[in-house]
Nucleic acid binder design. Structure first.
Lengths: 346, 346
DNA sequence: CCAAAAAATGTGCTCGAACACACTAAAATA
DNA sequence: TATTTTAGTGTGTTCGAGCACATTTTTTGG
């Protein structure tokens, strides 16, 4: 009694065959006005929903998806992505999806180009891309599109009408969140925004976060803090930062815009006398370690794992269930302290 | 070429018919040792996964699920659940699932009993229950089980081997998170844990949170704070709390263990001179309002919407896809300030 | 050694949607 | 009027798993 209507039911109710109903549902034409009317009449008051399970039974094509991201061995920020991909594989194993992963060297644009070339030659149905090199990424996206390969991105945004979906965070807003936290925990005084990264690849990322951070204090017209910016490179960050500390004795807070907060925390823990509040990004083991020790006060979770997972699940929605997918998906920006960190690390 | 293995493929590889493979897969017996060995040999190196889509094609029953929760009109904590149910309905429309919602009066155990009676008479396949009345809930779960109705719970835990799955949060841990936040933002002095609720229904909830909160400071051996507890009832909380404020002039922080932080914030905003940090629960509009004004410093998100959504999606996994489901699912405990609140309210 | 019983194995149908193809009936053309 | 064309309709098969039932093979006992 409690059964869903099938095409056969509709056909019976309308006094036609299932083939005719099928033609109406798919607008394939070749239907008389009379049949059309009677079928539409039935459809209107019967709220028929096609059975997705049956629909996909026949479609036994395996969709191939390539995930392209920086090698987690070079930058452990990307480590959680492996788990995300594994989970997605497991979750969607039942559907016809074949996922393979390709790493590139995050400090080498050539490597990025080469990996994308490899993937292009494989001609998958879709690519899920971490486009950390802006220009090269745009180029890659264009090529994929030329070959009718669907492109979704995550973590970094590439302005392009050719990207089907982007999963990531609002970086300016994450800067504002950091600012709000800083305002609550840091003593009056000087606050430094610290950009620390191997290369320029995170340039846009870091700038957006700084913008949001500064905007917050500007809007609040909060004169308790004097905000300065410091750029650090890998090669000499230790000496440069130690000098910076000496030059700015009234520092009360540090906002590190990349996942390298542990590098700063290490120095602070050794040298600093007075409390300096530290807010950083990402749940790397080293960061968590300083979070637990109290040297880092808060971490902001960019949730790379969830980003890939969602990116893949959108592809399943699109390919397997024929759903249209949103252009942009902004993930929540999680505030993490020592007590709730474990939940976000799984 | 890129196709998943089917039972037919396995049969061919093992030199038997699909019926025999089927018997092996389902351990239905009536298979010779020889056939068993050859099929197992094939299965071992072929990693066969049954096609869930085909498996469920035949099963065209509509599963009926009743969600039983407090009326959001009486306690707006539950308001987000409506959205969660709507989303689940939309998401799982394609699968054979019929979801209906039943509200009871959260201040009236009779109403809880009555609603469960109604639902029991409907004989659904499963019930997703917010068991806020412990004893009555246990009773209801027992009755459901007697009638072979699957019971999942959310938000509140009922100790019972008869509950298939619980979705919620670790309340002690959420108390610890509040404590950690409080330690970072509140000045040295006195901190009050405030239990404020209409009735006793949240008694266990509040106690667990208090336990976690106190444990944190006890473990840290932090002597900067003196922690006291205050119980408030709806009828006279204004007078009682105002008196309490006068009696305790050195208060620097308040931890409100229910969603009623706005009631306290209102009084604090009017009367208090020195900064008193407030940490509360749940993203009610009134709470968010004080969060934006800076009277409330942090809210902890119990994520009722996600709780129901997950509860329903587990039922889909169980009924439609035949997956086994975990006994307990603990959601992350989100720390919310004015800048990231919107993400958790959708 | 043969018949009956038991064990093992294979066949064929079902589920719902999709689509190719066969078929009918009416209209157009010779 | 006979024949072709075309619009309209219905039938039958496919997908993979699951299970009832038919069929074959093996074992048992008289």
């Amino acid at each position: 009694m409690n059964k869903k209507l099938t095409i056969k039911d509709i056909a019976q109710l309308a006094g036609v065959s299932k083939g005719t109903v099928d033609r109406v549902l798919h607008k394939r034409g070749k239907v008389s006005q009379k049949a059309l009317d009677s079928i539409n009449a039935v459809l209107e008051q019967a709220d028929y929903e096609p059975n997705l399970i049956a629909r996909n039974l026949k479609n036994n094509k395996i969709y191939t998806v390539c995930v392209v991201l920086p090698d987690p061995a070079s930058d452990s920020f990307w480590l959680p992505c492996i788990k995300g991909i594994e989970e997605a594989k497991k979750e969607f194993k039942a559907f016809n999806l074949s996922i393979s992963t390709y790493y590139f060297d995050p400090e080498n644009t050539e490597s990025f180009i080469a990996v994308n070339k490899t993937v292009l030659d494989l001609a998958p149905d879709a690519v899920l891309l971490a486009p950390i090199f802006y220009k090269e990424a745009q180029n890659a996206v264009e090529k994929y599109n030329k070959h009718n390969i669907l492109v979704n991105t995550f973590n970094n945004q590439v302005e392009s009408g050719e990207v089907k979906n982007f999963v990531g965070q609002d970086l300016q807003q994450s800067g504002r969140i950091a600012a709000k936290l800083m305002e609550v925990i840091a003593q009056k005084g000087q606050i430094a925004i610290i950009h620390i990264d191997e290369k320029f690849k995170n340039a846009i990322h870091m700038q957006e976060k700084e913008k949001g951070f500064r905007n917050y204090f500007a809007q609040k017209e909060n004169a308790d803090y004097n905000i300065i910016t410091l750029n650090l490179k890998r090669t000499n960050y230790e000496i440069k930062f130690t000098d910076f500390l000496k030059e700015n004795p009234s520092l009360t807070g540090l906002f590190i815009t990349t996942s390298k907060a542990y590098q700063i925390a290490e120095i602070i823990q050794e040298t600093s006398q007075n409390k300096i509040s530290i807010i950083g990004y990402d749940l790397l083991d080293k960061n968590i370690n300083y979070l637990n020790q109290g040297t880092i006060d808060f971490l902001i979770n960019q949730n790379p794992k969830q980003q890939v997972y969602l990116g893949i699940s959108f592809l399943v929605d699109y390919f397997v269930f024929g759903k249209e997918i949103n252009n942009t998906t902004l993930l929540p920006i999680d505030i993490v302290n020592s007590e709730n960190a474990s939940y976000y690390m799984e």
